[in-house]
């Protein structure tokens, strides 16, 4: 079963806010000068910000903010965020892989930016009975 896709817009302001909230001030997430110096195409989103947005999608699909039992991803491609008002978009979709007898639902999750997968092996287990 496919779950309804969700789209998240990501701008530079979002990265600055996430840096402050998370304490991750790595300059590759706010300085083009630094990002390009280390060989990136420009400022990229924190992998953990992408993971947090996908986590939002998962809790919204689950219908509860406390339903996630297990959640893991592999970061495969950076999310480049241009310095303009539009930023970029991350699209998140998921498929139910398994529903267990003890009330757990396992999801295979896909996250893309500009049509390219930015995560692989993105999986979550959610509790679907309270």
């Amino acid at each position: 079963m496919e779950l309804p896709a969700k789209t998240f817009r990501v701008t530079r302001a979002d990265l600055i806010r996430y840096a402050g909230a998370s304490g991750d001030f790595n300059p590759i997430h706010w300085s083009d000068r630094f990002a390009t110096k280390v060989g990136l195409p420009g400022v990229i989103a924190h992998g953990m910000f992408t993971m947090a947005l996908v986590g939002r999608a998962i809790t919204e699909w689950a219908g509860s903010p406390d339903a996630v039992v297990e959640y893991g991803v592999r970061f495969t491609r950076p999310v480049v965020v241009p310095d303009d008002d539009q930023g970029t978009e991350i699209e998140v979709s998921a498929r139910v892989r398994e529903v267990t007898e003890d009330g757990l639902t396992r999801l295979d999750v896909t996250a893309t930016c500009l049509g390219e997968k930015v995560l692989s092996q993105a999986r979550a287990t959610i509790r679907t009975t309270r």
């Binding site: 280390v38 992998g47 953990m48 993971m51 903010p65 406390d66 996630v68 039992v69 297990e70 959640y71 893991g72 991803v73 592999r74 970061f75 092996q121």
Partner: peptide, 16 residues
């Protein structure tokens, strides 16, 4: 640390 990139991340929760 300047050459570090994030590979994988996983959480297994006992509770939130």
């Amino acid at each position: 640390y300047s050459r570090v990139v994030h590979g994988d991340q996983r959480f297994a929760y006992t509770r939130p």
